[in-house]
Nucleic acid binder design. Sequence first.
DNA 1: CGCCTTCTTGACTCCTGTCAAGTCCCGTGG
DNA 2: CCACGGGACTTGACAGGAGTCAAGAAGGCG
Lengths: 225, 225
Amino acid sequence: MCAVQEEALCGSLERRGLSDLNRIGRLRRVERGETIAWAGEESRNCANILSGLFKLSASTADGREQTVGLLYPADFVGRPYAPRTDYNVTALSEAEICVFPRPAFEETLESDSALEREFLRRTLTALDEARSRQLMLARQTAEQRIARFLLDMAKKMGGARPTPGGPRTFDLPLSRGAIADVLGLTIETVSRQMTKLKAARIIALPGGRAVTIIREAELRGLTAE
Amino acid sequence: MCAVQEEALCGSLERRGLSDLNRIGRLRRVERGETIAWAGEESRNCANILSGLFKLSASTADGREQTVGLLYPADFVGRPYAPRTDYNVTALSEAEICVFPRPAFEETLESDSALEREFLRRTLTALDEARSRQLMLARQTAEQRIARFLLDMAKKMGGARPTPGGPRTFDLPLSRGAIADVLGLTIETVSRQMTKLKAARIIALPGGRAVTIIREAELRGLTAE
DNA sequence: CGCCTTCTTGACTCCTGTCAAGTCCCGTGG
DNA sequence: CCACGGGACTTGACAGGAGTCAAGAAGGCG
């Protein structure tokens, strides 16, 4: 039943506990662009992502948006132990999720210490990531952010390499606008930086949302990390 | 023994568990400016803050620094379940901490589910805060950051109000440089913004690191949240 | 009182945001 | 098959906020 069982939260469970969580979970298909949780709303459900990509975002009073995290298959969605959620969760692609009512999930956490420990580990990892994104947003230039983003995406997306160690091509699962939201930039700046990298022949943009990383070492050099 | 017992992590424990944690903890005094954990270093210890203020920081390759979190009394320091820590932890004032070896702390977490649950809650809160700081660093102007920072600090520091509802005065526990690191700005920009707020008679700067919030409503209006 | 750090202020630069046209891409429908 | 339309993307011109560099002033500690 659970397509991402080895990696997902429920994958850490032994047979018994797993069936507990599966029993309360309900499969749901989500359309691209659909928002499954709104900031300020009561936190009623939690979920595991089975497939697809989501963004976790907040917006300023004047309407500009910032993505504070990307969620991939096997990642967890929701905020246990809080009455409300502070962030929107929106699908960036078609997706499937496994939804639990929050109180039931909390009870399962409390009765299954292996699950709870795994959840704690994941939360600690998410915290490290959120802090690393703070450093990026506060101190990196647009060029450094784009370089880091492309490398991260290449890693996440896999992508074909015609020759071993050679250029790698993959499709960005995000629009320019969504990338801008993630990196704390504007669409125009993202576009200009991509054009600049293309002009420098560090990447190629074969069309659509495809990206080819031609000279990975140079790109890595631009991240200055 | 535990001066912040009601609030600190160990305060959530029942007598039995508490004594477990106290048995492995060791009191330590820390000087202002002292760094008790270095990024990239092996994660050997965890600690509870008993008194004082710490910053959690990272730096870019070119040496600029960013504070990714402030740690107050009763807050937890360290990274269980990871071999290395990614951040520096530095005392911004004289401080006292209660130190546990990381493996012993992990064992205690695993054997005491109430402690583990409390630790999970704290980690979730820290995650929310880290995400909220992402929004600030990505999308707020210098003026908005300063306004929010002053209001946050006023709340944390308490501070005397000569007349109820009237102006409130408190001492900033951070230097201008430390504030700049927290807000993702430079010392000069912090200084200029403070001067601007002073000129607008929204705050006063009586000397030293003291701040008086004269018109709190206006200051709150500037945060645009 | 004097030194040294911290803070303030000024002049200038530059990166990124804003506003405004285009251009590309792709699916739809004639 | 190709023209059309609309969203996504690119490009240009310009402005402005924050960074950088450089003095100076203020404050604290010996």
